[in-house]
Computed example of a mutant assay.
Amino acid sequence: MVRFDCRDEAAAVRFDELTAVAVREITELEPGTLVYATSVVDGEPLARVFYEVYRDRDAFRAHEEADHVRRFHALKDPLLTGTRVEFLTPGAAKGLP
């Protein structure tokens, strides 16, 4: 799970545009990425949260090393004031493989 905090409203708009492209590329090019869900945080219009589920660690590494993901990181980073990454270990759930 990753939380991104955008600098301002213009940065949030651009971040969302970049995210739409990245999600399309991830969907097309990454069979090992099982879930890549993006959200705006209620009550915090400059915050975004991504929930990501990968088939395994190799799929995660492939995601991080992919050209389209590296490009996304390079373009989005100047738009942000903060990023918080948390690795989760799944517990009881519905909808996960």
Rank of each mutant, 00 (worst) to 15 (best):
A12G: 01
A10L: 13
D16N: 10
L80I: 11
R7N: 03
P97F: 03
L96G: 00
P45Q: 06
P97H: 01
A11S: 12
D16C: 02
A22C: 13
V23Q: 03
L88E: 04
R7F: 03
H73D: 12
L34R: 14
F15R: 03
V41Y: 04
L96W: 12
E25Q: 14
L88Q: 02
E25H: 13
T27G: 10
P45L: 05
A62G: 03
P90H: 08
D58S: 08
F72W: 14
V85E: 08
A22S: 06
H73L: 14
E25M: 08
D56P: 04
D42I: 12
V69N: 02
T33N: 01
L80Q: 06
F4V: 07
A20W: 07
A37V: 12
A11Q: 07
S39A: 12
D42H: 12
D56V: 06
G91P: 02
A93Q: 13
E44N: 11
V85G: 00
T33V: 14
D58H: 11
V85N: 03
D5N: 08
D58C: 00
R55Y: 07
M1E: 15
V49A: 03
F15G: 01
A20T: 10
F72M: 04
G32Q: 12
K76V: 13
L88P: 00
E30H: 05
E86R: 13
D5Q: 14
A93D: 10
D67P: 07
H68N: 06
R70F: 01
A62F: 04
G43I: 11
E65W: 10
V69Y: 10
V53P: 00
P78W: 10
R14G: 01
